[in-house]
């Protein structure tokens, strides 16, 4: 090291900054902490402990609706045809009665109900029989490996973190597209920073500001997972063809109408690709976040690593892969179905 260039204590400065933030905005971080903890915990509780008396009717109605819409599509007799509605109703009642009997004889398990629920979601998202069957089989495999509770914890963490990343990221992406100077001079460098900073580094200030646990993991995940949806929202809106924009303006659109009726719908497939990427990144990050006390499958992977338990580690890893595949295929299918292609 030469003496000409002074050593900048950049890291120290950042530490001071984090400390300062903690001291000044502690109340804010506390609020965020409480909110996220309850949100994640609530989703987790819902998915593990939802009473059969609520879940069973939901399943019955969803199955009835699917049957009805399938029949309507097949028969194609227009809205006057009441048969699909009637048959759908009968199926729903049958499903309800079947599950209810199972409940009465004491064989009902919430886990099974939730697996059926996710299977239905897969069908609603993609409408493809293969994905639906694989979803059911994959979830059953996780259940049979004894990793169900961890998987639910991971899903809750991913769900909340992704949702937060989207709630912040999509508006930022829209703003970046609308104001080119803001997008190019501020958002882009910040996103570059967020994406290239090693993921582990986020964990450190997250611990200081939010203590070890799910919330700190979620915060790190939100920051890590946000860039794709911001970038792709920005890109999608900027890619709306110039003549389409001119046409919409020439017809007398307001800025809001332009955004809601033209730009966002046309950009939707691109935005959905961003949402897909964000969710996938969130899933990969919650595993890393187990290092600062986030629960779920990441915890299993980490404890398998520390015990050098090959079997346990493999099972936990497979469970992560299964979740990733299911979430990825479902969100991608949503993107393929979007209009504006």
């Amino acid at each position: 090291m030469t003496d000409f260039i002074p050593q900048l204590p950049l890291g120290d400065w950042f530490e001071v900054l984090v400390d300062l933030a903690d001291r000044i905005f502690g109340w804010l971080f506390n609020g965020v902490n409480v909110f996220l903890r309850n949100f994640i915990g609530g989703i987790d509780d819902l998915l593990t402990g939802i009473p059969a008396i609520i879940l069973i009717p939901i399943l019955a109605i969803l199955i009835g609706l699917i049957v009805k819409s399938q029949l309507t599509k097949r028969r194609d007799n227009g809205p006057e045809d009441k048969r699909p509605l009637i048959i759908g109703g009968i199926v729903a009642a049958g499903v309800f009665a079947f599950f209810f009997i199972i409940l009465l004889v004491g064989l009902w398990e919430t886990e099974i109900g939730i697996i059926i629920f996710f299977t239905i979601l897969a069908w609603l998202a993609a409408g493809r029989i293969t994905l639906t069957v694989l979803t059911a089989l994959g979830l059953l495999l996780i259940y049979s490996m004894g990793l169900w509770e961890s998987a639910i914890a991971t899903i809750a963490l991913v769900l909340v973190s992704s949702l937060m990343a989207l709630i912040i990221g999509i508006p930022v992406g829209i703003l970046a597209a609308k104001k080119a100077s803001f997008g190019d001079n501020i958002v882009r460098p910040v996103l570059d920073f967020m994406q290239t900073m090693p993921a582990f580094v986020y964990l450190i200030p997250a611990i200081i500001l939010f203590q070890r646990g799910n919330v700190a993991g979620s915060i790190a995940t939100i920051i890590f997972a946000m860039p794709p949806v911001v970038r792709l929202t920005n890109l999608g809106i900027r890619q709306v063809p110039g003549d389409v924009m001119e046409a919409a303006k020439s017809l007398g659109s307001t800025g809001k109408q332009l955004l809601l009726k033209i730009q966002l719908p046309i950009a939707l497939p691109t935005i959905l690709a961003g949402i897909n990427q964000t969710i996938m990144l969130a899933l990969s990050m919650v595993v890393i976040a187990s290092m600062i006390g986030a629960g779920g499958l990441g915890y299993d992977v980490r404890s398998a690593l520390s015990r050098v338990d090959i079997a346990y580690g493999f099972e936990a890893g497979v469970a992560v892969v299964i979740l990733a595949m299911i979430i990825d295929r479902m969100t991608q299918a949503l993107g393929d179905k979007a209009p504006g292609q």
């Binding site: 389409v244 046309i266 504006g340």
Partner: peptide, 11 residues
């Protein structure tokens, strides 16, 4: 206005 490349809304 009517445009050269139509400017229709694809969605």
């Amino acid at each position: 206005m009517v445009f050269q490349n139509f400017g229709l809304f694809p969605h």
